[in-house]
Amino acid sequence: MLMFFNFLPRPRIFFLRVANFFPILAYYYRQELMNLYDELQSIDLDDLLDRLTSYATNRLKSAGLKDLGGKEPFDFVGDLLLKVIEGTRDWENANCSFTDFMFGSLRSEISNFLKGSLVGQTQDLLESHAYNNQDDIKEERQQVSELLQQAGADDDELMVFEYWMDGICKPREIAEDLGIDVKEIYRTVKRLERRLPKIREQAKSII
């Protein structure tokens, strides 16, 4: 299957773009290529940057950090992309999709930034005492769910939270399981995302 792609006429970018509509084809083609230049030419980079920026904005907001050292959330995304191009963060040997790599790396960059801040250092102190015992996690999950309820979370939000805690996190999978339109889940996730920072202070005291 992989040898087939060597005989495809040029330009390769055209076939990558077509392959994007056929996930299995895209998977095999990317396995064969894994070339940053071709990837950047073929993906919808505009769309990816929007998604990454939205994630970064909400992640930083939820950490309660007011001072980003003069940076905007978009700057975290831009700096990361340039690191990937310069090779400081190596996608070509990462063995995952470019989108997955960018989200994973952005999560790591923001996490490192927060650890360096006062907010992060305070959180670190508290998390160093956090336990990982299964029964304790069950109890903590229950307590977080109760806090969400007290903060005004509706049944839909609580249900989505439970799915997350069970390891089911893709909105489409949750929607399919419930037999509802995925847009309902998107709306619920947005409400839940806005609700979570309201309980972070109280959730710290659970530990």
Partner: peptide
């Protein structure tokens, strides 16, 4: 909140941002 719970929440939010439709 323990790392376990926080990580699951973050995994879910990343899945959301990867998947959400363009209009939303």
């Amino acid at each position: 909140m323990s790392n376990n719970i926080k990580n699951r929440i973050d995994d879910a939010l990343i899945a959301f941002y990867k998947e959400v439709d363009k209009d939303a």
